[in-house]
Structures are given as C-alpha cells and as structure tokens.
Design a protein around this nucleic acid. Structure first.
Lengths: 198, 198
DNA sequence: TATAAATGACCAACAGTCGGTCATAAATGG
DNA sequence: CCATTTATGACCGACTGTTGGTCATTTATA
C-alpha cells in the first residue's frame, strides 16, 4: 500500500555514502546533522535506520571488512608459504590499500573502549575471532607442510595480537618509527625461530 | 596580594579526587559537571586547570602510571631471569592490582584514537617509549647473561606489543577467554624458542 | 485512501565562557 | 606595630551555542 524500503540495503547505502566523511574526519567532529546532510537525508531519518552515530560506524566497518576479507583471501591464495601468508596478513596494519579501513577500525576500537556496546559488538567479535582463526589456520597449514615446527601453533593468536599492538601503539604515540619495517622484522625473526631446520 | 595556589599540585588533586569516578564510569557518561561536583569545586574552576575532560584523564593517567612504574621496578628486582621479568611486565595487562590503571589506560587509548591531541600526548609517548626500552633492557640483560639467544632483542618491542594487542582484543571483543593464561602461554612458547640450549 | 517514509521543529543535556564576588596578601600610613 | 586600603587571583554559576535524539506532521506511493 505504500513504499517498502529495503531497510538492510538502505542502512548499507547510508553508511557507505558517509565513508569519506568518516575516513577524513575524527569521529568527535562528526555530527549527526553533517552525516545526514552528506547521506542526502534528514536527521530524523538517520534514526529510522540507526540508533546512534556509533551504529553507523559499525555498519560501515562491517561492509568494508567484508570487502577487505575477500581481497585478502585472494591474495593469500597467491602465495604458498606460511611466512608469506603471515606477512600478507600483517599488511592490514600498514598498507596503503587498507588506509581507509584502518581509520574506521580505529573509530571502532575507540568507541568500544569508551562506551562498550554489548549488542552491537557481536559482528566484530565474530570478525576478530575469524582473524584469529584465519591466522591459526595459516600456521597449522605451515606445520602440516613441515615448514614450521608444531609448537608454532601456540603463538598464532600472538602473531595477530603483535600486529594489533604495534598498530595501536604507533597510532597513539609515535613510539614506532616505521610500522611496516618493524612488523616485518618481527615476523622474520619469529619465523627464523620456528622454521624447521633442514 | 592574593592567595597563589600551586596549580601543578591542584591539577593533581583534582585528577586524583576523580579517580574512582573515572574508574567506575565510562568516559562518555562522565560530564564536566559531575567531575566538578566530585572534586568539590565548580564547573568554571575546572577550566582554570584543564582545557577539557580529556586533559583530566591524561593528568590522572600520568600519576597512576608513575606510581605503578615504581611498584613494577621493585617487583622486577625481586626476580632474576628475563623470562620471569617479562612475565611481571605482562601482569600489567591482567593483574588485579592494575585493574584501575587499565580502565584509565583504555580511556586514554580511546581518546587518542578518536581525537588525536598533539600537545598532550608527549608524556604518554615518553611513557610508552619507556616501556619499550624497559622491555628491550630486560631482553638485553637476558642475552648478556646467556639465558637467551642474541637475536631475541629483535622481538623485544614485539613482546610488549603482543601484550597490548591481546589486551585490546580482549577488552573490545570477547575473543580471548583468559587473557592471563593466553599471555603467559605465549611468553612460555616464545622463551622456549629463544632460550639458550645447554 | 491507507500506510510507510521522510521531515525538521523542538527539547533537554552538555561543553565551554565570562562577568562578577570574595578572601587574602601586600602596601600604606599613622 | 596595628588599622585601613588596594590589588589580585581563586572561585563561582548563570549564560550561550551546539548537539543528540524525539515526535507530530507532511509527503509519497500502492
């Protein structure tokens, strides 16, 4: 009897329309009014689709991550060794292609640290868990192929956390001069320790 | 001609008076008015000492960290091996004694990720750099004592970042069941790789 | 015409400002 | 040495502008 909009699709449209806005502005400087204007709808309508500003960030992150994960999956297939794969994994934290995603990711971390939002984080929990598992699989494959020693599996999650920790540290304080260099050097060293000696 | 208050001391007093408030509330729920009431002064006076809410967090963090670092220094002296020292270092991320400090630390990370605040972060940069160096020294000492192999030094910063990354991940998403267990297991595994074989 | 979508005026809460008040230390003078 | 004046900085809270979020009303379409 009346138009029925696809709420799921519209949420996605609104979030993606604001991508540049979120990427180029600090979350604090962004107002609902600006976001609404940018998305070409009114302030009131924003609230028909999202409960607050934070939810828009989550929606945006969700879609950018899905896109990124597909690209990553492809790239991971293009190499064969566990070490190469781990390095590709670490690219998330410094490469140019993921610059925009990282900006949103920072907003996401920031939101969740200041104002934990139980019901929204489920997707992100899944997502990070998926990364942990992904890393575990890469390591396990390396073990199965006898590239690296069995106990490498014990530091699989740690490898991901190492990247995350360095990323946060270098974002917040300038305690790391060159994230890419530092990260890859750590990976090299760790692999020299876990590689099977022939 | 008039009373001159020790601004440095008063900043400290205000910040410390609000410790419980910051520890027990999410930063978002705290208003300047609440903070002022809690500190026993007026809203206007808050602005005589701080530019905004964020600065109070920084001030508070500064003092809690200094206190924590002294305690840590003591504790580090009580053990002898690099592995034990690294484990003590990692306690920051999960122990009961540092619970309050961690809450403020989370606020600090959150603030800096959403609204980088150039002129204030210098202390924190120093602080984190100090932690990095601290860890490097612990590792270097272990190398000098021939407990661990020379190239261990290449993952010293990584060891600290690993803790930070796991801490953030476990705070944000429940992707880590037991931070303490996981962290110590990673340290054990890494040390089993870098320990000098006799 | 019935109903969902979209709107923007509206409100309450908040951060941050500013003119005014007051206590006290210094200066003055008897 | 004490009484009085004066200068100053600490402190306050009313005020302003901005923002997040609501809701009665309007608009569009099937």
């Amino acid at each position: 009897m009346a138009i029925i909009v696809d709420k799921v699709q519209k949420k996605k449209d609104i979030a993606l329309a604001c991508k540049d806005l979120f990427v180029n502005n600090s979350l604090k400087d962004l107002t609902i009014a600006k976001i609404a204007t940018n998305a070409g709808i009114s302030k009131g309508s924003i609230y028909d689709y999202f409960q607050n500003k934070e939810e828009i960030v989550f929606e945006l992150l969700r879609h950018m991550m899905l896109e990124h994960d597909e690209a990553k999956e492809c790239k991971l297939k293009s190499v064969t060794t566990a070490k190469e794969r781990v390095k590709i994994f670490a690219e998330f934290f410094y490469s140019d292609e993921t610059k925009e995603l990282r900006e949103i990711y920072k907003d996401f971390i920031s939101i969740n640290l200041t104002a934990p939002n139980e019901h929204i984080t489920s997707f992100q929990t899944e997502c990070v868990n998926r990364y942990f598992n992904w890393m575990c699989n890469i390591i396990q494959e390396g073990i199965d192929k006898q590239e690296i020693i069995p106990k490498s599996i014990d530091i699989a999650k740690g490898l991901f956390a190492l990247g995350e920790g360095m990323f946060i540290s270098s974002s917040i304080t300038n305690t790391i001069d060159d994230l890419q260099k530092e990260l890859n050097q750590n990976i090299e060293t760790i692999f020299s320790l876990i590689e099977v000696k022939k």
